[in-house]
Amino acid sequence: MNLSKFLTVFSVAGLILTSCSSDDDAPAPVSEEEVITTMEVTLTDGTDTVTLRFFDADGADGPTEPTGTASGPLKASTTYTGSISILNETEDPAENVNEEIEEEADEHQFFYVTDDLGISTAYTDKESDYENASGVQFTSENPVGLTFSLTTTATTGDGMLRFVLRHEPTKDAAGVSGGDITNAGGDPDIDWTFDISVE
């Protein structure tokens, strides 16, 4: 190849280069998939309802401090029916994250962790209560924990109640199906502790 041929190649390359420039279109914003702004735990004993509410306006990515509040104290020696609702309120209408968990019920499990005030919990749902993304009901019987029951004792005072949602836990490990987080493994999708009181 002589010089003139080379220069031809070179100038073509130059054209490619310049034709790529000045692309000022605004990029598309990312619709973030895994945002959780809100978790509401509703506890009801048939007459009264206590709501534990987690709220983080800008999701995990944002710097705004999330808040956790309890609507009121729990009653002593009472059994509550509990349910958990998880939302992404950065979208309008709000995205119901429960659906995602239900569709992969076999890959998720909640744990309710507390050493305080003698509070005990039990699962009231199982995987077979839910359907996967293609509408097929799960056949396995392991707990998921979107619904549960919570029982207080006669002990009163202040305490902490921690809600953990694990992704890909080892559900058949010792104690896990009974709600013991020790051997569960997996990754936390949710790990939040509420301050509660029993009166």
Binding site: L17, C20, S21, D23, P27, A28, P29, V30, S31, E32, E33, E34, D61
Partner: peptide
Amino acid sequence: RYQENFADPLTGVRRLIPD
């Protein structure tokens, strides 16, 4: 030198490095 970075928005995760 000319350089262009494109961060695909389809990841569903906010871009760590922008366009």
